[in-house]
Amino acid sequence: MGFSQALSGLNAAATNLDVIGNNIANSQTVGFKAGRTLFADVFAGAQAGLGTKVAAVMQTFNSGTLENTGRNLDVAISGNGFFRLIQNGEAVYSRNGQFNLDASGYIVNAQGARLTGYSEGVIGSDPEPIFISTGGLQATATTQVNATLNLDSATDAIDRGTVAFDPADDATYSYTSNITIYDSQGNAHPTTLYFSKVADNSWEVNMSRGGELATNTGSITFDVNGVLDTVTNLDSFQFSPGGGVADLDLALDLDGTTQFGNDFELTAATQDGYAAGSLVGIVIDDRGNVVANYANAQTRVLSTITIANFTNPEGLEPIGDNVWVESPASGQPIENSPGVGLAGTVSSGVVENSNVDLTRELVNLIIAQRNYQANAQTIKVQDEVLQSAVNLR
């Protein structure tokens, strides 16, 4: 009698119901990937077949919809790939980008698995757990000043044979521009640049800090079109602030400066020093960079999130908590930064919802239920036929 076929159908249908029920239960689980049951017949040379079996439960890795959360540490992958995390010393992979900072300063998921990335944005290095130091950013002394300006070509020249430069006497220079520089301990020093026209197309450049005149005097010349031609001695303006800080040695870059028949105008001025600053926030940008923001308006890329791809994602082994581990069927991970090669891009402030289609799953549930009932009916009919045979006289 064919009880075995019907029993195999019941077992397979029950597994299918389990898979569908699991999909429905996780329809609101961030990063969840729906499963589907694959069936295979059991033949083994029997004329009528020996029933069915569950060949595999396969997960579908098509993307879910993205939902805006506004949290800086919520991240979603658009396209292929998985976040790489370290959980109990093992590399695991997930599409759930709901991250936060733990008490030790690591970016972790809800289970405490640590998100990994390329340290300080050095792509190609070994991925490491992303660590956020709560310490402040150390002060850095100014070494480079950049300024772009226009010097009025109609300005009268100053005869240096009779008029010596004196920062206290505005008759000894043509124009000034102010900029703030920083010493090795982050103290701010208001500094003045002096430009003195000493001949046609030729200017003298001086610098002072709080009344202290730099030990160096530079010069610049322009061609007949008013374009900067040569610069001399602009690479070492030195000051001695005292107070236990290192001496300052500044280079001045005037690239783009012109001498046209227009008013004196400073169009850009920057310098590379800054005061110390405390950490005020962490953001993840669209390139996957984990960026620290400091109170001194400085930013630093601490790490770049690692995205892992697999030749056969369906071969990954699920271990729960929205993570998978690699298996022989999946192949080894192909790791890269977001948007490079096969790696998808990332978006900050959003999460990827479950890819479960509830409407489809409810339809599948009805079909699975009918399948289960049909197999149960087969057993009932087989039982009736058996009883008829037993009752023959």
Rank of each mutant, 00 (worst) to 15 (best):
G186A: 03
P328R: 14
N353G: 14
A56F: 08
V301K: 05
A214V: 02
L101E: 00
V363H: 11
G136A: 11
G331R: 08
L38P: 10
M1R: 13
A268D: 14
G121V: 03
T29F: 01
K33I: 00
A343N: 09
E317N: 15
G45D: 02
D286T: 14
I132N: 05
L7Y: 01
A275K: 02
N88G: 11
G218D: 04
F82P: 01
D74F: 02
S27W: 08
D255K: 10
N80V: 02
A13W: 00
I220H: 01
V92F: 07
E90F: 13
F237R: 03
G81P: 01
P338D: 06
R370Q: 10
Q144C: 07
T306N: 10
I20W: 09
K197D: 05
R300V: 15
T52N: 07
Y118E: 06
T155H: 04
T69K: 07
L386Y: 11
G124K: 03
V227M: 15
W324T: 11
G31P: 02
Y93R: 05
T267E: 08
S240E: 13
V385A: 11
F39R: 02
I334L: 15
Q59R: 15
D169I: 07
N391Q: 13
A297T: 15
V381S: 05
D357Q: 08
A168L: 04
A141N: 06
Q259N: 13
N72D: 14
S78G: 12
R360H: 14
E128G: 09
E204G: 01
G288D: 03
N262F: 11
S240M: 12
V325A: 10
A76T: 03
K33V: 02
F310H: 04
N391T: 11
N22Y: 04
A44W: 07
T232K: 07
S125M: 09
A34H: 11
V145H: 02
T304M: 02
V280W: 10
V390W: 00
T52P: 00
N72R: 12
G51H: 06
F310Y: 12
I86Y: 08
D235Y: 03
L248T: 09
N80G: 03
Q138E: 14
F82R: 07
Y173D: 01
S4V: 13
S219I: 04
F99I: 06
Q87V: 07
D74S: 07
V325E: 07
V340M: 13
Q185L: 13
Q87N: 15
T192V: 10
M58A: 13
N296G: 05
F83L: 05
Q298A: 03
T148N: 14
Y175G: 02
T215N: 13
N88Q: 14
A147N: 01
L302V: 03
F61D: 06
V350F: 14
Q238T: 15
V350R: 12
D159F: 01
A276I: 01
S354L: 08
D253L: 09
I282G: 07
D152I: 00
Y175P: 07
V356M: 01
V122R: 15
V325Y: 01
L279I: 04
L228K: 05
D321R: 11
P318A: 11
A171C: 10
D18V: 08
I158N: 04
E67P: 12
